[in-house]
């Protein structure tokens, strides 16, 4: 008996040490990003490095976020583009995924399983493989260099998971609730809007945040479909910055930080929904 308790305590210590190391591994790179972003360019280019910035400066942040200078205007432009693309993708994803998930959950039409699993298979396809045909397609549709080309593509990234996740929610809402509503005088559509939709709102939030983060972070398609400087999204913009100001590491780190802030905040606030979005399907299987 005592031996086991002792063993458990040994595991407990190992657990704490492991978690501490893992947290350091996770955090230190980001801490270094932050520290660097608050240094001057000169201070950043020291060997050995300045472990702690001697002269803390927010100069880089002022430059990036101020519309008064060229760099700031560009960066804010990228940020606005990213926001717009991500927001549009999110809204469209929900609008497309909700009815589809509902149909897959409630209706028994022929080909339902086949269609459902082919939608899921989207997760399997490498983005880069689709790049060429989509590039050709977008050229043909005259969508190259438009945000629409990205929105359309991003839509399909989040869609399979969104449909899968929401279907799980609808499966768990008893059909009798809708039946009751229909008997109480609602049409099928009213029953859906008034009864089912509010109950699936956690799923819709999870779907939305997942789509938003995917769209915000996407790089390859934005890199390929856009070349007009004013249309770029943040990840591509970040890369452009780097090629233009190769040695300005504090600036690049500040830009990386600003780029990460919206998704990290969104994620931390809505963590449980996001985690649910990622894990729902796998755990049920």
């Amino acid at each position: 008996m005592r031996a086991r308790v002792h063993g458990d305590r040994g595991w407990g210590i190992a657990r704490v040490v492991f978690l501490a190391l893992l947290t350091l591994f996770t955090l230190l790179p980001m801490v270094w990003m932050l520290l660097t972003s608050m240094k001057t360019q000169f201070a950043a280019s020291q060997y050995p490095p300045e472990w702690w910035p001697r002269n803390v400066t927010f100069e880089q942040y002022f430059i990036l976020l101020s519309p008064a200078n060229e760099t700031g205007r560009e960066f804010l432009r990228y940020m606005f583009n990213s926001l717009w693309v991500s927001f549009a993708t999110t809204v469209l994803s929900v609008m497309v995924a909700v009815p589809a998930a509902y149909a897959f959950s409630r209706f028994r039409f022929p080909g339902r399983n086949l269609l459902f699993y082919s939608v899921l298979l989207r997760n399997m396809f490498p983005a880069v493989v689709f790049l060429m045909p989509l590039f050709i397609l977008m050229r043909w549709l005259h969508l190259v260099n438009t945000e629409l080309s990205l929105i359309l593509t991003y839509l399909t990234f989040g869609l399979p998971l969104s449909i899968w996740l929401l279907k799980g929610f609808y499966d768990n809402i008893p059909a009798q609730l809708e039946q009751a509503a229909r008997i109480d005088g609602a049409t099928r559509f009213q029953a859906f809007i008034q009864i089912v939709m509010p109950l699936s709102s956690p799923g819709i939030i999870a779907t939305a945040i997942y789509s938003f983060i995917l769209a915000w972070n996407e790089y390859v398609y934005a890199l390929t479909f856009l070349n007009d400087k004013s249309k770029l999204t943040l990840p591509v913009g970040l890369q452009r910055f780097f090629t233009e100001y190769t040695t300005n590491w504090p600036g690049l780190m500040a830009a990386s930080f600003i780029t990460s802030v919206p998704v990290v905040v969104l994620f931390l606030v809505l963590q449980k929904y996001f985690v649910r979005a990622l894990t729902e399907g796998a755990v049920k299987a």
């Binding site: 980001m30 790089y219 990460s260």
Partner: peptide
């Protein structure tokens, strides 16, 4: 621990 997973891969690459 999840932060690296949600930030943009571009930012991660530059960091």
């Amino acid at each position: 621990l999840l932060i690296p997973y949600v930030i943009s891969a571009v930012a991660a690459a530059y960091i």
